[in-house]
């Protein structure tokens, strides 16, 4: 186990904060430059719902105050930055007095659950298949089939999601079309509920897995080629160890470490892909929340969701950067 030098740590923490700060600033500035006034949109919706509105000037003033829009811009900006870092994003305009943070609080576990499950499945399958591409004892059929399956790597998960949905939900009717769990189960820690969640989550997770495993497999293939030529592999063979034992204990164990850094590069795209998958499967995570907010022009929700996803991505990258030297002592920090 290596120790992390302080200069490296401060460097990474600084980058983390700067990333979140830049993202928050971009999210704040962009709508301010737009000619569309969110309060007008909200008032328009009220007018469409209730016909005429009395005292519209007073309501307008009141709303501006409740969203803090009557303050000078610089004050608004500082309030916004402070509030964002404390995860307070104000109130939703579409479902008015609901705080955005509670909407996000409901959606976040679904997104994180789907993400972790699909990431773990992809990581295992991808690395195993990548290792099998190089291993000399792999059956010939697999050596042909794996590279053929890699063609799907470049497709965004929304397209694979649509195709899988069509085949398994509407044609074969094996799996449910949408939603997080069945209509006939009560949410709670019961077996029926968990079963239903897994049953409904299978297809969204699979649509992410089929298009992302190739990325890991390609990386693993390159690393395995290097490991295959190492002296310790040759020695293990010379000792007469079983090929399967050599594969798992000697080759994969040494090749897999650099793969973890690839997380940092890939995570942004994975998150964006998952947002879209949630939208087509009507999965109640951040993606669906974002999509609904776009439909209703609910700016606080759009900003809040974007901020939280970027925050999650930045923290994930930060953790990967931090954990990696701990598990791979060969890495030395230059500071």
């Amino acid at each position: 186990m290596g120790r992390i030098p302080l200069s490296y740590l401060t460097n990474r923490v600084f980058t983390l904060f700067l990333t979140v700060f830049v993202a928050a600033t971009l999210i704040w500035i962009i709508p301010r430059l737009s000619p569309i006034d969110p309060i007008d949109v909200m008032l328009g919706r009220m007018a469409a719902g209730g016909g005429t509105i009395e005292n519209s000037e007073a309501i307008l003033q009141q709303l501006r105050e409740s969203f803090g829009l009557d303050q000078p811009l610089i004050v608004q900006y500082f309030l916004y930055i402070v509030n964002s870092f404390t995860l307070d994003f104000g109130l939703s305009t579409a479902s008015f007095p609901t705080p955005v943070s509670s909407m996000i609080g409901y959606a976040l576990p679904w997104t994180l659950g789907l993400m972790f499950i699909s990431l773990i499945i992809t990581f295992v399958i991808g690395n195993l298949l990548g290792a099998l591409m190089v291993w000399e004892h792999t059956p010939r059929l697999w050596k042909v089939a794996i590279p053929a399956a890699m063609v799907f790597t470049s497709i965004p998960p929304i397209l694979s999601g649509l195709l899988l949905m069509y085949v398994f939900s509407t044609q074969l009717r094996w799996l449910p079309l949408s939603g997080p769990y069945g209509l006939n189960v009560e949410p709670g820690w019961t077996f029926a509920f968990i079963n239903s969640v897994l049953y409904h989550g299978f297809l969204p997770a699979m649509s992410i897995v089929v298009v992302t495993f190739g990325f890991w497999a390609l990386g693993m293939r390159g690393l395995m080629i290097t490991v295959q030529g190492e002296d310790y592999t040759t020695l293990a063979k010379a000792k007469g160890l079983k090929p399967r034992y050599i594969l798992y204990r000697y080759m994969i164990r040494n090749a897999i470490l650099p793969q973890i850094t690839a997380f940092a590069l890939k995570i942004g795209l994975l998150v964006a892909g998952q947002v879209l998958v949630e939208r087509i499967f009507a999965y109640p995570g951040m993606g669906k929340l974002l999509y609904d907010a776009i439909l209703t022009q609910d700016y606080p929700v759009i900003q809040g969701v974007s901020f939280v996803i970027i925050l999650m991505t930045a923290i994930a990258v930060f953790l990967v950067d931090l954990i990696y030297p701990l598990i791979d002592p060969r890495i030395r920090h230059g500071g």
Partner: peptide, 18 residues
């Protein structure tokens, strides 16, 4: 380093929604 972490889709969603 900072910009590579930010998923473009989300910033663009904010932009286009506005």
């Amino acid at each position: 380093d900072v910009m590579i972490t930010i998923p473009p889709l989300l910033i663009l969603v904010v932009f286009q929604a506005a």
